[in-house]
């Protein structure tokens, strides 16, 4: 069973990602609201991918990505509603809000089976 962690503090966005993952993929999604919560989950679960919102209450998606990958390296996708803040690099995948469910599912499948 492949588990993905989604870190996002906005409940409707959490609900949407849960729906996308449940409806369109065969993966399991667990969610966290803050960076601290995410780090705890990353230590206690075997995670295959991190989807991180750029704008979090206690940290930002990029520095959280660094910390989570230090705990356990996995596919990392940064999601942002600040399209202008996205500077694509080689390290992580980037997605802009509003998310397209099919596109998200496709990216997840591609990233997780391509490993």
């Amino acid at each position: 069973m492949t588990t993905i962690l989604y870190v996002e503090d906005h409940p409707p966005a959490q609900l949407l990602m849960a729906a996308i993952v449940t409806d369109l993929t065969s993966y399991t999604l667990i969610t966290a609201k803050t960076g601290a919560e995410a780090e705890t989950l990353a230590r206690t679960n075997h995670l295959e991918a991190y989807i991180l919102d750029l704008d979090l209450p206690d940290t930002d998606g990029i520095s959280l990505a660094e910390r989570l990958n230090a705990i356990y390296p996995a596919v990392t996708i940064i999601v942002s509603a600040y399209a202008e803040a996205i500077h694509p690099d080689q390290k992580y995948l980037y997605l802009a809000k509003p998310l397209d469910p099919d596109h998200v599912a496709q990216i997840l499948r591609h990233a997780l089976t391509g490993r």
């Binding site: 966005a13 609900l15 949407l16 509603a81 809000k97 509003p98 998310l99 397209d100 469910p101 099919d102």
Partner: peptide, 14 residues
């Protein structure tokens, strides 16, 4: 604006 649009468009597309 994009935060609510994310939910509106995402759920509608689902």
């Amino acid at each position: 604006l994009r935060t609510p649009l994310n939910s509106i468009l995402g759920f509608a597309k689902l």
